[in-house]
Nucleic acid binder design. Structure first.
Length: 800
DNA sequence: GGATCTTTACTTTTT
DNA sequence: GTAAAGATCC
């Protein structure tokens, strides 16, 4: 995110709203209830201990139980963030620790930012000294940079994002001569990511799992991947946690220094921690055990990316004697909403168990509305009408949200709202820094700052098109790989030879010269000036200006936006450092609008009115969750429903469509089992007429039983995929000889004594046989029998 | 090397 | 149905 030097949030820059991340305190994140408890708690600086008055008994206990392990089970809307921030304020106010001695960890940058702001509102500017308040990854990076050399990295290592990781995985797969179709890079990335989430290094991946990928070579590929990262002086996101764990384990003195430094530790959203994060925390907490974790097992919805609800369930075992505080007093929702949410989540087993209650006894509180439509288009139309009707009763659009299970559902709402002229905003979708043009531009900057950044160089070497095609890139790679040098350096050497076609050679030479020039101007120009020059001289902006496609102007606008965003930082490296971790931009509040987002994205937010469409079997609970994770999957889906319900302050509309288009085919649906898990006494079933049938009164459900649709997955493609998965796959043909480490070392050592002295007969793939006329380091001048005199690299010739 | 055709996936997604 | 990535053709 963009922040000014004093740490306050900057107004969002226009254009950034396309990034569609949740606003800081825009419509999605409303300010606390006017005159409400939260607002009073936030009300400016006040004498010490006054902050405690604003808490209820349990919250106060959670704040004041400062020493020793504490588990705070905070239900939805029970003032979880307030407890965390007040606790920090309390520790500071009572002089137990200085700001720099508190470790406070969150999952998202947004949460970290909010926490810092709220602590600042309680304790004033000293909150700025909280250097260790941040995301797991930000703090991990900080630790790793300090001790990088202990794990074979330089302190200026680059952090690769998912895109880079997949490309790296692809290179490994190719280098190993595996069939890219059978073993997709994306899958390899997922597997490695999963291992890293579980704290597994290549050496301790369970044997069975290591075998599952690439005919038993899964762990080898992981190892190769890690080795590549070292060569690139890079880490991926998983390493930001794994490497510090490694350091802590192998260097007790380093661990001890951190255990001493962090006098108090706090963790937000503990139910979302994965094994690696758990191990990391446990190592740090073993010192003084002043660890306070806050979470809600009922809101654990990230199991699919490695979160272990078990971490929260077994906290008391890990930290015997832990104080457990339950926050159950809900300040957000009406009684019927809480009753519905509690009733639904009560169908899950294996909970720590909390019962939310509210002191708000509004006799007029609305029941939940459950309604159905003939199909998904009708559903969007009906919800649109509902929104307009609320709008006429002067409800703010900012206070309405449509929470969907899967992003494809958003489209029908968007289509409908465009027709109606109803303002909406979509949260989620590709982020600003994930856009192609932004990533391309960043790649240029990365190569300038870090010439060894091969992934960045490869990305832009032929973007815009400059005649450096597949063949040329492959030649670059071969050279780089065989000599263990970065691509840029390989390119520098290759252009001095005649390995490449003259045209290719010239443009590669130009590119390298450009990079050298830009790099030399790094100190002379401001980084924004340089950025503009780079984008201009490289022909990158020109490329989009020439592009006649509809989105080209928008992309140019994004590039301008990028340069504007860079202005907030004081140097190119600091900008790059920032964005690798904080791929996050502010959303301006702008016009009043309905929010459309996924249930996952909605966690932590609240709205007066919440629409929950698509409650159909197969979609919600999602078929795949049930198929792949069985009961556990179903329970996670139910928690997702719980999260959805508890986002609402006043009213909820649950919707389902009788027919929905699945992969382009209309299919009839079965109403979600979750509908029947809502308490009847708090639900108004809206009888729908107009599509025949109707429902209610007959069948097993209160909702119409419709023909079950044939499983989506009974399609030929799916079956093929299943067959492929289950079959033992034969070793695909080796595409190119494996480059073996020993050989490589031998080659680079050979520099001292030429492997091909003058007069040696050599063979070159392209130029045929010839004899060496001169040797200059690794460059040979060879008189070829047919092709004449050429300068080539020694790694391209062999003895005949 | 670039344009065009074909194939494939298609839940959720932060860092 | 659709969009993006990959393969194939020119």
């Amino acid at each position: 995110m963009i922040r000014s030097t004093d740490g306050s949030a900057m107004p969002a820059v226009p254009g950034f709203e396309e990034s569609a991340s949740a606003p800081l305190r825009g419509p999605g994140m409303p300010a606390p209830k006017r005159g409400g408890i939260a607002e009073r708690a936030l009300g400016g600086a006040r004498p010490a201990a006054a902050y405690l008055d604003k808490l209820n008994d349990e919250q106060r206990r959670a704040v004041e139980t400062v020493d020793g392990p504490v588990l705070v089970l905070a239900g939805a809307g029970t003032g979880k963030t307030r407890v965390l921030t007040t606790r920090i304020a309390h520790i500071l106010a009572t002089g137990r620790a200085r700001p720099g001695e508190i470790l406070a960890v969150t999952f998202t940058n947004k949460a970290a930012r909010e926490m810092k702001e709220r602590v600042a509102s309680l304790v004033g500017p000293s909150a700025e000294g909280m250097a260790w308040l941040g995301t797991f990854h930000a703090i991990g990076t900080r630790i790793l940079r300090r001790h990088a050399e202990l794990v074979g990295l330089r302190p200026d290592f680059t952090i690769l994002d998912a895109d880079d990781q997949i490309r790296l995985a692809k290179q490994i797969i190719q280098a190993e001569g595996l069939d890219e179709k059978r073993w997709p890079a994306r899958q390899m990335h997922n597997i490695i990511d999963g291992w890293k989430n579980r704290g597994l290094t290549p050496a301790n991946v369970p044997l069975g799992e290591a075998r599952a990928f690439a005919n038993g070579r899964g762990a080898d590929l992981y190892k190769a991947y890690q080795e590549r990262l070292r060569v690139l002086n890079a880490t991926d996101f998983g390493d930001l946690l794994l490497e510090p764990i490694q350091i802590f384990r192998t260097h007790p003195d380093v661990l001890a220094s951190y255990q001493e430094r962090f006098r108090y530790m706090l963790v937000d959203e503990y139910q979302d921690t994965n094994v690696a994060q758990y191990l990391w925390l446990r190592l740090l907490a073993q010192g003084n055990r002043n660890l306070c974790v806050v979470g809600d097992d009922d809101q654990s919805i990230y199991g699919w990316r490695g979160a272990e609800v078990d971490n929260i369930l077994r906290f008391e075992n890990d930290f015997p004697g832990a104080a457990v505080v339950r926050l159950e007093n809900n300040y957000r929702s009406t009684a019927p909403i809480l009753a519905a949410a509690s009733h639904l989540i009560g169908h899950n087993e294996g909970r720590l168990g909390k019962t939310l209650f509210t002191e708000d006894v509004d006799a007029d509180a609305e029941k939940l509305t459950v309604a159905s439509s003939w199909d998904s288009e009708e559903e969007a139309r009906a919800i649109g009408e509902e929104i307009e009707s609320l709008q006429r009763k002067s409800h703010s659009l900012d206070q309405m949200a449509i929470l969907v299970r899967a992003s494809f559902q958003m489209r029908e709402f968007e289509d409908r709202f465009v027709t109606l002229g109803l303002p909406y905003r979509v949260i989620g979708g590709p982020r600003f820094y994930e856009r192609k043009e932004i990533r391309d531009a960043l790649a240029y900057f990365r190569v300038i700052v870090q010439p060894a950044d091969d992934l960045a160089f490869e990305r832009i070497v032929n973007t815009p098109k400059r005649g450096i095609g597949e063949v040329a890139v492959k030649t670059l790679y071969d050279t780089a790989r065989s000599r263990q040098i970065p691509l840029v350096q390989a390119a520098t050497e290759l252009v001095q030879t005649e390995e490449l076609k003259p045209k290719t050679r010239t443009s590669l030479k130009d590119l390298i010269a450009s990079f050298a020039r830009w790099r030399s101007e790094l100190d002379r120009l401001t980084h924004t000036e340089l950025a503009e020059i780079v984008l201009d001289e490289s022909g990158y902006t020109e490329m989009w200006r020439m592009d006649r496609s509809a989105d080209a102007p928008g992309r140019l606008e994004n590039l301008k936006e990028l340069v504007r965003a860079m202005d907030e930082f004081d140097s190119l490296p600091s900008f790059l450092e920032h964005i690798s971790l904080v791929m996050d931009t502010e959303n301006e509040a702008g016009q009043e609008a309905v929010t459309i987002m996924t249930l996952h994205a909605a966690k932590g937010l609240e709205f007066d009115t919440v629409f929950l469409p698509g409650w159909e079997e197969g979609l919600f609970p999602h078929q795949r969750a049930v198929d792949e994770s069985g009961q556990a999957g179903l329970e996670e889906e139910r928690r997702l429903a719980y999260v959805g319900l508890t986002r609402a302050r006043q009213r909820i509309f649950v919707w389902f469509a009788v027919n929905r288009r699945v992969h382009g085919m209309w299919q009839s649906t079965i109403p979600s089992r979750f509908l029947d898990e809502l308490p009847e006494e708090h639900v108004d079933v809206r009888e729908q007429s107009g599509y025949g049938g109707g429902y209610g009164g007959y069948g097993q459900s209160r909702f119409d039983r419709v023909e079950p649709f044939s499983s989506t997955y009974a399609t030929p493609g799916w079956e093929r995929a299943q067959r492929r998965k289950s079959q033992g796959t034969p070793q695909p043909r080796a595409r190119e000889p494996l480059t073996i480490e020993g050989e490589l070392v031998a080659k680079s050592v050979s520099d001292a004594e030429p492997a091909f002295p003058v007069g040696t007969r050599v063979f070159h793939m392209k130029f045929g046989n010839g004899s060496v006329a001169a040797v200059e380091g690794n460059k040979l001048t060879v008189d070829f029998d047919k092709a004449g005199r050429k300068r080539v690299l020694d790694s391209f010739v062999q003895r005949p």
